[in-house]
Amino acid sequence: MQLLTRTFVALSIAASTFGAVLKRDVPTILADISKISSQVTTLDNAINAFPDSGGSLVNALAIHTDATNLVSSVNTATSDTTANGAFNEADGQTILNAVQAIEPTILDALTAIAAKQPAFAALPIGGIPALVLQDLKNLDAGTTAFSNALIANAPADLVPQATDIQTTIGNAFDTAIAAYS
């Protein structure tokens, strides 16, 4: 009987510890958004610095690396948001504000990458436009999953604003993807 009690206590402690590890909190999500913001700015700067003609393969591949890093961060943020559960009103508003703050940079990056399609296509090594297209699709899928997780956890009164942001960014992804399709 004593062995059964010890086993039960050990399993209870392990289960509560495991649950605590899986649960995320709002500061973690805000840190994720901050990291995303920094990476979006890096990506936007790299895209805008890529010349309209005469660009280099090295710079194109650096943009690919920036996009890949961003996908990873967005996926982490999605996981953390899903693990958090519903936001209270104050946290929901804080998260919405953080996302709204990076929306213009996301839109600028997507507009710029669409406009730079001829420059990527003109690179001496083929396949770069296909790589950009794949990056855009991966970023679109990751961003959609993240925004869906945020909307699922948002207080009801913040859902319309969050949905508007999702739609605006989604439309910008559609335009950028169309430029490379």
Rank of each mutant, 00 (worst) to 15 (best):
T17L: 15
A20S: 12
I36V: 15
S181T: 13
A149L: 02
G55H: 06
T111S: 11
S37I: 10
N59R: 08
G85M: 06
A130N: 09
A83E: 12
H64V: 08
N97I: 13
T5R: 11
A20T: 14
L43N: 04
T7Y: 11
I13D: 03
T167D: 03
I169T: 00
V159H: 01
I29S: 07
L43F: 07
T76N: 04
D66S: 14
A49H: 07
A10N: 10
V99Y: 04
V26T: 12
T168W: 05
S38H: 12
P124S: 10
Q39R: 11
N97F: 05
L107C: 07
F173W: 03
D108G: 03
V71H: 04
P27M: 04
S37F: 06
F87H: 08
S147L: 13
T78R: 02
A149N: 03
D174T: 02
L96E: 13
T105I: 12
A154V: 01
G92F: 06
S12G: 12
V99P: 00
A141H: 07
T143Q: 05
G142P: 02
G142Q: 00
A176L: 00
A109M: 03
S16F: 10
I151L: 04
T167H: 13
Y180I: 14
P27H: 14
K116V: 06
I106P: 00
N69E: 09
F173H: 01
N97T: 11
A15Y: 10
S73K: 05
A98M: 10
H64L: 15
Y180A: 02
L136M: 06
A77S: 01
N69C: 09
I63S: 04
S16Q: 11
L96F: 13
A114T: 07
Q2W: 15
I63K: 01
F50S: 02
